[in-house]
Amino acid sequence: MALKRRLIAGGMTLAAAAVIGHFVHPDGSLFTVMKPRHTAPLAAGSAAALEGAAVVPLAAQPDARLLPEPATEWGLPILPQDAATQLGPPRIKADLPGRVAALDAGYAPPRTDGQRFNQYGLRCETALRAEPGAGGMVTLRLEAPCQPNARVTVYHDALRFAVRSDSSGLLTVALPALREQAAFLVTLPDGSTASAVAHLPEMAEYDRVALQWQGRAAMRIHAYEFGAEFGQPGHVWAEAPASPEKGAEGEGGYLVRLGDAGLAQPMMAEVYSFPRGTSRRDGAVRLTVEAEVTDGSCGREVEAETLQRGADGAMRTAALSLHMPGCEAVGEYLVLKNPLQDLKIARN
């Protein structure tokens, strides 16, 4: 399995710290973090990173509720924010690199990227692995020891959703692959990314459709397999999702709901998969999209995207704006039969 990693240049964590580095002092006065006591070369880097951070769109910014609290006691001198993770070689204030470089043309300053450590002494490296599983599923395992409880956005093909890593910066998420050669990318609040690929030959056996949306809209896919009615066996949805193992045995489809609805700006997705190749039955699987009319969505436009196979066989994304009924209809559902095309299954 190929692993690719990329860590963003050193100033980025510092930049994030500087962006959020305005606190209100207990006595009520606005208390600004002291000018960082960095040496000259680093200060230049952090300024550049700050500029970069200023143009990050709001939606891409880390969820403020999830960021670790500053560990300093109020009233005490505040350490530079990155000091806790700066366990690498001590900084030499006398510009050693500059001076050595002047003596030796072949000299390169030591790389300090990737050599930071968290409070448990684990290297601050982001690693992603993708493991193929049953039913064309892939299990992603993310290790980002220096970014615990972080918002992690997962991208795969046109599919995307946001989840949260745990308190040690670990995340395990299982999702259906949308292609045989499946590539996965995750992005973290500090702007760093990690990617992984997996090969899923059995993926060709599956028909997949997906629905994804941002925000607090309550949306669902319902699949009614071979004439099943609501609540009967064969009605697959978030509350009766069936399992990929069942799919692998050709019993029927399964649904996977992705994303953490508890995040500040949720990015959610649902993927329904049907094992066309191993199906023991033929007929139609009816697919509907359901949007609940809530206090937040009534009378508004709700944006969503559908992913389904286009005429050329590749997954195609379609943007939808649902005009939600007025607020007198709160608690009801807008049910749409047409945005997702029914699957027609012919047994081999």
Binding site: G310, A311, R316, A318, A319, L320, S321, H323, L336
Partner: peptide, 19 residues
């Protein structure tokens, strides 16, 4: 319509009132 628009390189958005 979607295929026609996609071949034209046009961006597509479907505004749904109901089915």
């Amino acid at each position: 319509v979607e295929s026609f628009a996609a071949r034209r390189g046009l961006k597509i958005r479907r505004l749904i009132e109901d089915d």
